[in-house]
Design a binder for these strands. Structure first.
Lengths: 215, 215
DNA sequence: CCATACCGACCGACTGGTCGGTTGGTTCAT
DNA sequence: ATGAACCAACCGACCAGTCGGTCGGTATGG
């Protein structure tokens, strides 16, 4: 699509942008949006503030682009993991596991996505909530599938999606802020059981999926 | 206890502090911590910046004191609501309802407690997480009670507490940020069913409590 | 009853520093 | 040589915290 480097110059520009975004990612996830100075990003990207403002109109635009592309990547990875399963409850379970696994392997990504978004200003709150919506919408769609296949009783899947997301969010945030790394996957079995039970998956079914999912 | 006003001067000082805290509460919950200038608080409290710095050492100290006292009040209100019930599952249900009800009636309190805390800086993240801990610890203790009375099967109540808190948190944050007020209590029935199911409360018991709780 | 001294509470101008964004000039590939 | 890419220096706004000074009330003592 738009990724074809017509001239070497365009390629160079693309590389530079990428480098700035990478640096911004690191600085933001280390210091948070407010405390990250554009000069810091410039230093980390081996460029200058002016150089950055040639490629991006505002500091905010860097952050938004970073949030969006990161969320895109994350969601597509979850979707890919879920495609491996066919049965709706197993899909939901796979989604939970995928999210925890990805975050577990990318602490700073998690930090950026889940904590810094709410960082400051109405602007960001809206942006971050859009992100929450994408996730919980994804979950809700799996739950809708499970309902229509009769795997679980009918329920307000929008609310359930939000609840699932909130539960996962809280566990990840705790893991992020805790000093002791305390492996995130450790909480997965309990989380899976609670979430599946919450939407009315029968106990036997949970047990059977548990066998496939945990090891 | 310490509330005896020895001299009229002490009383006056106490009043002044209180007035500053009230103003800070309003300004913080309107603008967020970072965007709230101490001058703004001074204006709202009908005093001056110097006046504020006579009573408080730093801007941060105002915020922390505000967070703590607000959380204290909130938690004690929840505990009082829960004391009315004796049966452990009903207690948990009452706790959920109480939290939603209180937040519903105090939007700005909720905003301050749940959103602005994560606002900025590691300092605050720690402070806010302490608050999350208090809540989810409270929930965990109710769940422990339910487990020991045999009302629900054994489970990792710490994790379950975090999950419950995360679920509630997410719903409240959505309600806070949404433009349309969309009554918070509306989500309560779904939330209660999902949370109670998640910890293994039998369906009949949930139904019986539902009758007592919703109207 | 008044005058002097004193003090806690309070004020607002100022300081020091930070940081987003701009600008005018320079480098470099083509 | 020409324009895209880049840079260092700079600007202006903002803001937490400080400081010298004011003021209303209270205590003292004559």
């Amino acid at each position: 699509m738009g990724t074809t480097p017509r001239t070497p110059n365009e390629e160079r520009t693309r590389k530079r942008r990428e480098r700035i975004l990478d640096a911004a990612f690191h600085v933001f996830s280390r210091a948070g949006y407010r405390d990250a100075a554009v000069d810091d990003i410039a230093r980390e990207a081996d460029t200058s503030k002016g150089g950055i403002y040639f490629h991006f109109p505002t500091k905010e635009s860097i952050f938004v682009e970073l949030l969006d592309s990161t969320a895109d990547r994350l969601i597509s990875r979850v979707e890919r993991a879920v495609e491996a399963e066919t049965e709706p409850v197993a899909r939901a379970s796979a989604a939970i596991e995928a999210v925890l696994g990805i975050f577990s392997g990318h602490r700073s990504m998690a930090r950026l996505l889940l904590i810094d978004g709410l960082g400051s200003g109405a602007m960001f709150r809206v942006e971050t909530l859009r992100l929450h919506d994408r996730f919980s919408g994804l979950i809700a769609s799996y739950l809708d599938g499970a309902v229509s296949e009769g795997a679980i009783p009918p329920l307000e899947t929008r609310i359930a999606g939000a609840i699932w997301f909130g539960a996962i969010h809280e566990l990840v945030v705790r893991w992020l802020v805790a000093d002791h790394p305390a492996p995130l996957e450790e909480a997965f079995p309990t989380l899976r059981v609670l979430l599946l039970r919450s939407v009315g998956v029968p106990a036997e079914r949970i047990a059977s999926i548990a066998g496939a999912g945990t090891r």
